[in-house]
Design a binder for these strands. Structure first.
Length: 469
RNA sequence: GGUGCGGUGGCCAAGUGGUAAGGCGAGAGUCUGCAAAACUCUUAUUCGUGGGUUCGAUUCCCACCCGCACCUCCA
């Protein structure tokens, strides 16, 4: 079956044809590590992980590269808003390097908690300054650059199809200074910095010598340099958030194609934002936001958030609400319970998933249709409940499907022991119930419920679970 | 101001020119001392509004209303 993806460049779904048969080279814009990544950031990585897993599911090989932006944004507080952790880190005398290290580690903790597969290559921008300087030199040689007081800039008028990703009318409509102060020395509003000079009176923590002067690379340089270094001058799929279309990716294309004269990326996949009803998009600068690490504190498995993301197509804006997250968490619980029941019924899975079965093709077809994970998830639900399919086949299918969904459908849920005091109440209630003192046992059940312990009486005895929240 | 996207049952949400997946919730039943859990069944003649094209539109076209995102580092 052909694998199709929506390509932002052509604004339509296209059959994915890789440069090397059966192998996909994917570049992902990674996090900027001067603060925590919030769950909105993670939506993109979950969607991209879905892409990687869907390709692997269909037998493709995948080479995925992710950058870490650890340079260029650490000079002023204004860039980072009032991030308490960073301010705290500074108070403790940490360097910009330490801050980057700290948040990189935090990012991958979250990333793994959401069951995202590690990229094959993770590249911090600060380790590729040489490559960026070489790229700039190539652009200079071809006449795409000019120098003004604060840096070396890219002359967008020199590239005939500049802005093709976002659309010409969009580029022409850009009003510089609408939200950021205009730079009067720039020749065209869309021109952007390739190399910024350190201010004479300032000693930056992160700065490098270059043929043009001491300073640091422009924000778009890293992705161009690293993507081409690891995946070649033309890559298969370039991923990122929707916000990057008009500026960051547009400029990556300008730099890369200006330097090589070749197509930079054949397919551009953009994930739309997670937004919150009242505050709009979840933003790093807008203050309070939710991180993956905060989910367990609220009583949620991080994978409940993954499930939540899987419920909505990646090209549709996703609105966050606690009510919807709660519904997702319950849905995931239900799916796991269903999977456990299928496993019990089946004993052992069939030797292999039945790839010719209708449900399997429906599942695969949904993935191949521009990564329609919500549809694929519906197929999974329906199939697991379908008793006309032999249980071992259902189990084999669930195992295979979870390689894509990555929801830990069969992982035994570890749970904390109940505090002794509450455990005593549970035993006391069970004793009262056995003695048919229902009044007392119901009182105790109520008391336990008030403390968040839900009682279940099964033929095998009394069990409990913790209420969420 | 420019660009783009979306409005589907109480909530989240997929989808198609031929009569609305799935999940959550809710209701009924089985089970239970009663519950919970589990199981079974039910839950949109209808897809923002008004026109148009068509044998037929939620799906195509036009207008309007509403919401959102991007144009700044941001996923």
């Amino acid at each position: 079956m052909d694998f199709t993806v929506y390509n932002t460049l052509t604004r339509q779904k296209e059959v994915f044809k890789p440069i090397k048969a059966g192998q996909a080279g994917i570049y992902t814009c990674g996090p900027t590590v001067y603060h925590y990544a919030h769950i909105g950031n993670m939506r993109s990585y979950i969607a991209e992980d879905g892409l990687v897993r869907a390709l692997l599911f269909h037998g493709w090989k995948v080479k995925r590269v992710m950058n870490i932006t650890d340079v260029g944004h650490l000079t002023s507080d204004a860039d980072s808003g009032e991030d308490k952790m960073e301010l705290g880190a500074r108070r403790e005398g940490k360097s910009a390097w330490d801050v980057a290290k700290f948040y990189t580690e935090a990012f991958f903790r979250d990333y793994k908690a959401l069951n995202c597969l590690m990229p094959d290559v993770v590249c911090p921008a600060t380790e590729y300054i040489e490559e960026m300087i070489a790229l700039l030199a190539a652009l200079e040689k071809k006449g795409f650059t000019y120098r003004i007081s604060d840096g070396i800039y890219f002359d967008t008028s020199k590239l005939p199809d500049y802005g093709k990703l976002a659309g010409k009318s969009h580029i022409e409509g850009i009003r510089e200074g609408a939200r950021v102060e205009a730079n009067a020395q720039k020749r065209h509003p869309a021109d952007f910095a390739l190399w910024k000079f350190s201010a004479p009176e300032e000693k930056r923590q992160m700065e490098w010598a270059s043929p043009w002067g001491t300073g640091f690379p422009g924000w778009h340089m890293e992705c161009s340099a690293m993507a081409m270094k690891h995946l070649g001058e033309t890559i298969d799929i370039h991923c990122g958030g929707e916000d990057h279309v008009a500026i960051h990716h547009t400029n990556e294309i300008a730099q890369s194609e200006g330097a090589t004269g070749k197509t930079f990326a054949n397919y551009w996949m953009h994930v739309r934002f997670l937004v919150t009803g009242d505050a709009g998009k979840m933003s790093k600068s807008a203050g309070g936001f939710l991180t993956t690490a905060m989910l367990p504190e609220k009583g949620y498995d991080p994978l409940a958030y993954r499930y939540y993301c899987l419920l909505t197509h990646y090209r549709k804006q996703l609105e966050f609400s606690w009510e919807a997250l709660e519904a997702a968490a319950r849905g995931l619980d239900g799916l796991r319970a269903l999977a456990a029941k299928v496993r019990e019924e089946a004993g052992a899975p069939a030797p292999a998933a039945h790839r010719e079965a209708g449900y399997f093709k429906a599942f695969s077809g949904a993935l191949c249709d521009d990564l329609n994970l919500p549809s694929a998830l519906a197929v999974l639900w329906e199939t697991l409940k379908d008793h006309s399919v032999p249980a071992p086949q259902r189990l084999a299918f669930a195992l295979a499907a979870d390689e894509v969904m990555a929801l830990d459908l069969f992982k035994a849920q570890a749970r904390a022991a109940l505090p002794a005091e509450l455990a005593a109440l549970v035993s006391e209630r069970e004793a009262a119930r056995k003695a048919k003192d229902f009044k007392r046992s119901d009182e105790l059940r109520k008391a336990l419920a008030d403390k968040g312990v839900l009682i279940k009486d099964t033929p095998a005895g009394t069990t409990w679970e913790l209420a969420r929240g």
